[in-house]
Amino acid sequence: MSEFLSDGDELFAASCVNSYAATYPWWETLLGAPPSFKATPTEAVWEVAPHRWIVLEQRPERAGNATHTLYVTDLDARVAAISARGIEPSDTEVYGDVRKVVYRDPEGNEIGFGGSPV
Rank of each mutant, 00 (worst) to 15 (best):
A14M: 12
R99H: 09
W46P: 01
A39L: 15
E61D: 13
A22P: 00
V48W: 03
A80D: 14
E93V: 12
A84K: 11
V17N: 00
D91P: 02
V17G: 03
E28P: 01
S2L: 11
E57T: 11
I87M: 05
T69I: 14
K100S: 14
M1D: 05
T92M: 12
E3A: 10
R78M: 13
K100A: 13
L5N: 08
D97C: 01
E110K: 07
C16N: 11
R62M: 14
D105Y: 00
A77K: 12
W46Q: 05
L30K: 01
D97R: 12
A84I: 04
E47R: 03
A22E: 14
S19L: 10
C16A: 15
L11T: 09
R78Q: 13
A21K: 12
P34I: 05
T40K: 08
K38M: 12
A81Q: 12
V72H: 04
Y20Q: 04
G114C: 05
V72I: 15
Y95T: 09
W27Q: 02
A13S: 14
S83M: 07
A33K: 13
N65C: 05
V102R: 10
P41L: 09
L75P: 03
F37Y: 15
R85E: 07
Y24D: 01
S6Y: 07
N18S: 11
P117H: 09
G64N: 08
T42D: 08
E110P: 00
V118C: 08
K100V: 15
G115M: 08
P41T: 07
W53T: 06
E93S: 09
A77I: 06
S6L: 12
A33E: 12
E28W: 05
G96I: 03
S83Y: 03
K38A: 13
T42N: 05
T23P: 04
R62Q: 13
F37W: 13
Y24K: 10
A13R: 01
I87F: 01
L11N: 08
W27K: 04
H68D: 00
E43G: 00
A84C: 00
A49P: 02
L11A: 13
H68K: 11
R78F: 10
Y20F: 15
R85A: 08
N109M: 06
V98N: 06
A44M: 02
R85M: 02
L56C: 06
E57V: 10
P60D: 09
P50I: 07
L5V: 06
A66W: 01
I87N: 02
A33D: 07
P89K: 09
A84W: 03
R99V: 04
M1L: 08
P60H: 04
G96E: 10
V48R: 04
P34H: 10
P60K: 07
S36Q: 08
E43M: 15
G96Y: 06
A80F: 03
Y20V: 09
S90C: 08
A14V: 11
Q58Y: 01
S6Q: 14
K100Y: 09
A39K: 08
F12A: 09
C16Y: 10
T73S: 15
V17S: 01
R85C: 02
S36N: 02
A21R: 14
T29V: 11
P41K: 07
D105F: 01
P34G: 14
T92H: 06
G86N: 10
G96L: 02
Y95G: 06
K38F: 00
K100D: 13
W53A: 02
A13W: 04
R52E: 04
